[in-house]
Computed example of a mutant assay.
Amino acid sequence: MPVIDFRVRPPFRDFLGMVMYGQPERRDRFTRQLGFEPSRAATEQSVDLMLAEMDRAGIDIGVVIGRNSGLLGSVANETVLDFVGAHPGRFLAVASIDATNRKAASAAIDRAMADGFRAINIEPGACAIPMQPDDRRLYPIYARCEDERIPVIMMTGGNAGPDLSYSMPVALDRVLADFPSLKVASSHGGWPWVTEILHVAFRRPNLYLSPDMYLVNMPGMADYVAAANGFLADRFLYASSFPFCPIDSYAAWFRTLPIRPENMERIMYGNAAAFLGLTDEASA
């Protein structure tokens, strides 16, 4: 079956200035805590080795996401577009915006959609001025994306802000209620608030979850898997969170999870394809 890895950060240009490449000891500590050995592609900062990992893992498409964050490092949309363009058919681009500047964000969305980006990435807690997901400064951006059917990826788990409050699901729940037609994917899957984010996903059908690195041998893993086998089967997203997890080792581990085969196919391809609009194009 085809596979989409929903969160890949390649060792390329602006990405190398991000914390995950700029602080390799921190990254590799996370990797080993999850039970993996660090990826050679990450330690040697090699795109070719990353592509080889994707081939070994059977990953057909990687989703490459821009970032606008003073806290974690930024990746310009132009960098994402150049990388995706250099590897036609292998990657999909997601644009990031300056969420603190409504007019600049609106212009960036216009450019991104014209350039073929698939979604918009917003990391409220990692902005230069940290915000909660339900900060009213973000509402015009959400409204724009809902009206134009632009999916939004939002980091609302893990290291989502200066303290744990920025990953708490309550604020995201309010956003999903206020914009019921806006498709939102939570990168890092709302971890560590696993029970709470699963409740939000149960009551808000516009929420997709991508626990990625925080699924691996972590508290709450069994609950995520239970949801993937049940009500969340069509909204659970497969993602390695490379370079924190090696693409090939993560894929091999993920395929051992007790997830029903028909759900595994949705999780590793169909759900991401639907979220990013690939299925709409195929049926057109």
Results as ranks from 00 to 15, higher is better:
182 L>R: 04
188 H>W: 07
99 A>K: 00
100 T>N: 08
147 D>Y: 07
184 V>E: 07
131 M>T: 01
170 V>E: 15
171 A>L: 06
141 I>A: 00
171 A>F: 11
133 P>R: 00
164 L>I: 12
162 P>E: 11
158 G>K: 01
124 P>T: 03
130 P>C: 10
144 R>Y: 06
136 R>L: 10
91 F>W: 04
185 A>I: 10
180 P>H: 05
176 L>E: 08
108 A>R: 00
173 D>L: 08
110 D>A: 12
106 S>C: 11
179 F>I: 08
175 V>C: 09
151 P>D: 02
108 A>K: 02
99 A>E: 03
92 L>E: 08
153 I>F: 12
144 R>S: 05
179 F>A: 09
185 A>G: 06
153 I>K: 04
84 V>Q: 02
155 M>D: 03
183 K>T: 04
123 E>Q: 14
171 A>K: 03
129 I>A: 14
141 I>Q: 00
85 G>V: 09
182 L>F: 07
117 F>L: 11
136 R>C: 05
176 L>Y: 04
152 V>I: 14
183 K>D: 08
139 Y>F: 15
86 A>I: 04
125 G>F: 00
155 M>H: 10
131 M>G: 09
111 R>T: 11
102 R>L: 14
118 R>Y: 05
138 L>K: 09
83 F>P: 08
178 D>W: 02
168 M>H: 14
126 A>M: 14
172 L>V: 13
145 C>A: 08
116 G>I: 08
132 Q>S: 12
115 D>E: 15
148 E>L: 15
178 D>C: 10
179 F>D: 08
179 F>C: 11
